[in-house]
Every structure is written in structure tokens, then in C-alpha cells.
Computed example of a mutant assay.
Amino acid sequence: MTSAAAPLACVIIDDNEINRFTLERAVQRHDQLTLAASFPDAVEALTYLHAGGKVDVLLLDIEMPHITGLELVKLLPEPKPAVILVTTHASFAVDAFELRVLDYLVKPVSYARFCQAIARVTEQQPAMPAPAAAPSSPAAPVDISATGTDLFVKTNGKLLRINFEDVLFIEALSTYVVLVTNKHKHVVGGTLKSIEERLPFRHFVRVHRSYIVNLHRVEALEDNMLKLGQYEVPVSRPYQDDLVQRLQAL
């Protein structure tokens, strides 16, 4: 007699507490799943995954702060788990399937539809490589090279030309940095310190342990908050005096 297959380790990432709880209950009811971890934030989840955290199935919300679900899929370490996206909007379906996710669930998700998605995972399980735990490694330095006001930044496995005059600020997120413009967010592997050391532009200034700002795009400073387009960035006390002097010198 053959033994039953081991339950699949499931990880949930959803910033909405009620949605996350609903998915947790669905996982706990399913006899082929075990809940390995549940996160309200994609950044916390990335730390877990890059540290070799166990995951066979990833239930992933799309619309989240800092890093969206679609951005996170591109950052998943190899071997990638089976990804099931869960969202309130069907409009993301085209983008989702371009990323080769296994299924796409629209909230509110019925338990029957949830089971159907898990059945697709188990059908493909023999062909899926088992994820292996691996020790976390230091973040690689940010790969950048400069041409005038442009930098070629390595993101999602390719070199992308970014005009840094369009960059409002750079934000640290765990072992990643996010280059924020008015229209885009570019997620790059590395640390804020590594990109700060390689930036050739003097008008990019550290104002907080988690932020570097483009002084040319600062619109106002009020109550220790910088206004840059649609965003506000905090200024911590150790950087205040230098920042004011730099702004006055512009």
C-alpha cells in the first residue's frame, strides 16, 4: 500500500486582514495543504522566501503597497512555487498569465473555486521540482552604469535605461530598493547603501535610513516631510540640517 502524499506547504501574502484570514481558513480545511506562513506584506514574504522558507503553493494578492503581487512574481527565487493570484479585479488576468501563474482567483473566492485551483497544482505536482531550502546570501550590489543623466539598472534580469532626472526618490525595502518616478516603480536587487555608493549624481541625498531623494524634484519641506510629486518622504533628525543647507544652495 502506497503512503499518502505529503501536504503541500502553502504561503499566503495579502495586506487585507479579512482576506488573509479567509484564505488561511481555506488552506486549513484542505487535506492536501498545510499553512507554512502568512504575511501581510510582500517585503516580509521575500525575506522568508530568500531565506529558504518552505513553499509549494503561493496564494498572492496583487494590489499591495511597496511591492505588488505581479512585481513579486518576477522576484521569486528559483525554483519558483506554484503561484495562484487572488485579487478583486479581473482586469489583471492578462498580466497574470503572461507571468505563467497557475491560476487566477477573483475575490470573494468560494471554497469550491479554491479547491479547483489547488487541484490544478496537484495535477502538475509530479513535474514540479521540489523547492530546496537554501541559506540566505548577502544582497548583490546594485548593477548600474551611467550615461549622462541616465543609468542602466539591472532589474528583472535585464538592463533597463532610466533617466534619473525622472526619479523622485529611492526607497529601501529589505534586500531590494525601489526607484520611484511619477509613473513607475522599478524594483532592483541590492541595498540602499550599495546604490548610494555608486550613484554619480550629487543631487541625490540620503534623508532617512530608508530613503534617498532627488533634490531637483523636491517641491516642499514641511513638518519633517518632503513633498515630491504625489509622494511624501520622511526626513529623520540626523539628516535635517544637511538637507536644509543643500536645498538652500540649489
Results as ranks from 00 to 15, higher is better:
residue 225 M to R: 14
residue 32 Q to F: 09
residue 161 R to E: 08
residue 161 R to Y: 08
residue 60 L to I: 10
residue 96 A to F: 05
residue 220 A to Y: 11
residue 114 F to D: 02
residue 195 I to P: 01
residue 53 G to H: 07
residue 134 A to Y: 13
residue 153 V to T: 07
residue 38 S to Y: 01
residue 113 R to G: 07
residue 210 S to D: 05
residue 97 F to K: 03
residue 193 K to D: 15
residue 151 L to E: 01
residue 16 N to C: 11
residue 92 F to M: 07
residue 131 P to I: 10
residue 74 K to F: 10
residue 245 Q to N: 15
residue 30 H to W: 02
residue 249 A to C: 12
residue 98 E to L: 03
residue 88 T to C: 15
residue 10 C to P: 03
residue 23 L to D: 02
residue 210 S to L: 02
residue 19 N to W: 09
residue 114 F to S: 02
residue 29 R to G: 11
residue 67 I to T: 04
residue 214 N to R: 08
residue 84 I to H: 10
residue 171 E to M: 07
residue 61 D to N: 08
residue 40 P to I: 03
residue 82 A to E: 10
residue 123 E to V: 10
residue 86 V to C: 04
residue 60 L to A: 09
residue 45 A to S: 05
residue 185 K to Q: 13
residue 108 P to G: 02
residue 86 V to T: 04
residue 144 I to K: 06
residue 212 I to K: 01
residue 188 V to G: 07
residue 60 L to W: 09
residue 166 D to N: 11
residue 147 T to V: 14
residue 118 I to E: 00
residue 52 G to F: 10
residue 16 N to W: 12
residue 131 P to T: 11
residue 105 L to M: 00
residue 213 V to S: 01
residue 66 H to A: 13
residue 103 D to S: 08
residue 154 K to R: 12
residue 149 T to D: 15
residue 169 F to L: 04
residue 229 G to D: 11
residue 71 E to M: 09
residue 210 S to Q: 05
residue 186 H to W: 14
residue 41 D to L: 01
residue 7 P to W: 06
residue 210 S to G: 00
residue 229 G to E: 11
residue 154 K to D: 09
residue 33 L to T: 00
residue 211 Y to H: 06
residue 140 A to N: 08
residue 213 V to E: 04
residue 43 V to R: 03
residue 203 H to V: 05
residue 75 L to G: 07
residue 7 P to T: 01
residue 224 N to F: 14
residue 97 F to Y: 04
residue 113 R to D: 06
residue 81 P to F: 03
residue 186 H to P: 13
residue 142 V to P: 00
residue 134 A to S: 15
residue 76 L to T: 03
residue 165 E to Y: 14
residue 216 H to Q: 15
residue 54 K to T: 12
residue 171 E to H: 06
residue 143 D to H: 09
residue 211 Y to C: 00
residue 91 S to C: 14
residue 123 E to S: 10
residue 88 T to I: 14
residue 168 L to Q: 05
residue 193 K to I: 12
residue 194 S to P: 01
residue 172 A to S: 07
residue 58 L to F: 07
residue 176 Y to K: 11
residue 166 D to C: 09
residue 111 Y to L: 08
residue 19 N to H: 12
residue 54 K to F: 13
residue 93 A to I: 04
residue 72 L to A: 04
residue 21 F to A: 15
residue 176 Y to R: 10
residue 241 D to C: 11
residue 3 S to K: 14
residue 21 F to P: 13
residue 21 F to W: 13
residue 37 A to F: 04
residue 56 D to A: 02
residue 238 P to I: 00
residue 198 R to C: 06
residue 44 E to Y: 08
residue 151 L to Q: 00
residue 233 V to H: 03
residue 78 E to V: 08
residue 162 I to M: 11
residue 43 V to W: 00
residue 92 F to P: 05
residue 17 E to F: 12
residue 39 F to R: 02
residue 238 P to G: 01
residue 7 P to E: 05
residue 48 Y to P: 06
residue 48 Y to S: 05
residue 80 K to P: 01
residue 44 E to C: 08
residue 130 A to G: 12
residue 51 A to D: 14
residue 133 A to N: 13
residue 54 K to Y: 12
residue 89 H to A: 10
residue 134 A to D: 13
residue 95 D to K: 09
residue 199 L to D: 07
residue 189 G to W: 13
residue 115 C to E: 10
residue 207 V to M: 02
residue 16 N to Y: 11
residue 47 T to G: 13
residue 225 M to T: 13
residue 247 L to K: 03
residue 126 P to Q: 02
residue 112 A to W: 05
residue 239 Y to E: 02
residue 235 V to K: 05
residue 231 Y to L: 11
residue 157 G to D: 08
residue 225 M to I: 09
